[in-house]
Simulated assay, not measured.
Amino acid sequence: MKLLVRNLERATTEQDIRVLFSTYGKVTECNLVLDQETGLSKGFAFVEMPDENEAKAAVEALNLSTLAKSKIRVKYAQN
């Protein structure tokens, strides 16, 4: 399942996100969206978790949780 993670602190890295979501299961892909001009984070990312139950657990646990002083929002990405 593809998840959308929003409201990330600009200094958050793909590795930070991968580690956080790996607590809930296997992460096959993690893409932090970067600004093409500056190379800085745009504040959101996509995380791919193949197991639906693990993805659901991650959404329930991490939505509105705090990561690097930002309250993140996690939901299912639209295809």
Rank of each mutant, 00 (worst) to 15 (best):
R18S: 09
T66R: 12
K42T: 11
A11Y: 02
T66H: 05
L40C: 12
Q36Y: 05
T12W: 06
Y24P: 05
M1K: 08
L34S: 11
M49A: 04
L3V: 14
A61W: 05
L34H: 13
D16M: 00
T13D: 08
M1Y: 06
E9Q: 12
R73I: 09
R10F: 05
D51I: 06
N31R: 10
V47E: 08
F44P: 02
S70C: 13
R10Y: 11
T23W: 02
K2H: 08
L32P: 03
S65W: 10
D16F: 01
E37S: 14
Q78W: 00
K42W: 05
K2W: 13
N79Y: 06
V59L: 10
A68G: 02
L67G: 08
K69C: 01
L64P: 01
R73Y: 02
K26T: 09
K26S: 14
D16L: 00
Q15W: 01
A58C: 03
L67N: 03
C30Y: 11
L62Y: 11
E52D: 13
K69T: 08
E29K: 08
R10W: 04
Q78D: 00
K71I: 14
L64E: 04
A11M: 09
L20V: 07
Q36C: 10
N79L: 03
T12N: 07
F44I: 05
L3T: 13
M1A: 15
E14H: 12
L34K: 10
R6C: 09
D16V: 00
S22D: 08
K69M: 09
S41M: 01
F44R: 03
T66D: 13
D51V: 05
S22G: 04
V5H: 13
F21W: 03
A77E: 11
D35Q: 07
N63Y: 04
E37N: 15
R10A: 09
A58S: 08
Q78V: 10
Q15L: 07
A55C: 03
L67M: 12
T23R: 12
L8Y: 08
D35C: 08
L62W: 14
C30A: 15
N63V: 10
A55H: 02
T23V: 07
R10K: 11
S41Q: 02
C30E: 05
D35I: 01
S41R: 02
N53E: 09
M1W: 09
A58Q: 04
C30T: 13
Q78P: 00
V33W: 15
I17H: 04
L40F: 13
V19N: 00
R18F: 04
R10I: 07
M1T: 14
K75G: 15
K42Y: 07
E52P: 06
L4P: 01
I72D: 09
Q36R: 11
A55E: 01
R18I: 06
E60K: 13
Q15N: 03
A61F: 12
C30H: 09
N79S: 12
E54V: 02
T38V: 13
R73E: 05
A68H: 14
K2S: 14
Y76N: 05
D35H: 11
G43D: 11
Y24L: 06
G39A: 04
E48R: 10
E60V: 15
A55W: 00
S22I: 01
D51C: 02
G25I: 03
S70F: 08
K71D: 07
L67D: 12
K56Q: 15
F21H: 01
N63C: 09
V59H: 11
